[in-house]
Amino acid sequence: MKKQKKIKIIKISVILFIVCILHFLGVLGSIEGKINYFLNPLFSFFYRAGSEINLIYTQQKEKRNIGDLLQECQKETERLLAENIKLKILEEENEKLRKYLDFKKKNDFGYVLANVISRSDIITYSNFNQFLLIDKGANDGIKKDLIVVNEEGIVIGKVIDVKEHISKIALTINPDCKIAATILNEKKTSGIVEGELGLTIKMNFIPQTEDLKIGDIVITSGLEESVPRGLVIGRISQIKRESNEVWQNAILEPIVNFDNLTIVAIVKPKLSIN
């Protein structure tokens, strides 16, 4: 009896090994995709339930009335900031177009909305989960390196991995998220932003000769093919400059609140939207 059970377990283990091989051969891809597709609404429902608890906890912690007011002001500020940036860019583009009469727009961008279904990773190595899983994937036209924004149009992260019906997003505070960015100063200084320690964002490769100010807004530079220009990433909160270094760095404070993300938008080039 004991031997029979052991043989049964060995047989099941062999079957599982074969399942792994079939996965790597790509045979099981459509089955996994179907499972994702049918279960995603359930995951999304439970994620929202967790979000509600998170929101209640945050409100109680910050004392409800002040918390509500702050949230409203925050949302309004985010909206106005994003709108202001867009208007400034439109103004600049308008001036350029006046000079170049035969200028044509190279690309247009659209949005794909997705529900967040999880914030977990296998091992949590910081107090703050820096990944999101969403219920849209390759079948919805999502690809790696697409930018993800919240409802105010502010950058929250980047797609770093894609399956058929789900995708993994690294938040801007995650070291895996690297974006080409520009500072809205006089010289429109460019650099690369990446997450640091799961808490802040760091902008690297800023020439020493560039003049930065605390409070300067940092936006996407548009130098990456699939990332439009002008999406707000954060605000400079600290400048690190060493005279013996080639580059200076800036620490950015994220403008967006990562706590209550339930719906996000993935920015896609319009030509590739289904």
Binding site: L39, F46, Y57, S120
Partner: peptide, 21 residues
């Protein structure tokens, strides 16, 4: 099994105050 998986992946991952661990 499905319920436990969904709870772990979706519900617990979004809990505050360190409960996501």
């Amino acid at each position: 099994i499905l319920l436990v998986s969904i709870l772990q992946i979706s519900f617990i991952s979004n809990l505050p105050a360190g409960l996501n661990g």
